[in-house]
């Protein structure tokens, strides 16, 4: 498993650059990850990212865009506006959780 230095901290990442250790994540790291993929973090972004982490902690898997809408309460359209083109991958990358596995 490779490591990288993000926001001055050594963290474990996979071949795509996703964090692999849930507990190594913090907000400074998230901010840098967001910058890496040109996402400007607003309060709404933080709220979503934190919800995604909470949900992952509870369920053991990453919420799909469907679940972010139906359980997290953020409509798909808004998710695409906040994380253009590939919301599921971008939000999970910033949140330090794996890409969602579910089909829907």
């Amino acid at each position: 498993m490779a490591t990288a230095t993000i926001a001055g901290k050594e963290v474990h990442i996979n071949e795509e650059g996703f964090l692999t250790e849930f507990d190594e994540w913090d907000e400074e790291i998230a901010a840098e990850l967001a910058k890496n993929i040109d996402v400007e973090m607003t309060d709404e972004h933080w709220k979503l990212i934190k919800w995604l982490r909470e949900d992952y902690k509870e369920k053991g898997e990453t919420a799909t865009t469907r679940r972010v809408q139906s359980v997290g309460g953020i409509p798909t359209k808004q998710q695409f506006a906040m994380f253009p083109k590939k919301p599921a991958k971008k939000m999970s990358y910033i949140a330090g959780v794996p890409k969602p596995k579910g089909c829907v």
């Binding site: 490779a2 990288a4 795509e16 996703f18 083109k85 991958k89």
Partner: peptide
Amino acid sequence: MTVIPNFDS
């Protein structure tokens, strides 16, 4: 080593 995912290209 820093790997940045290539989401947009």
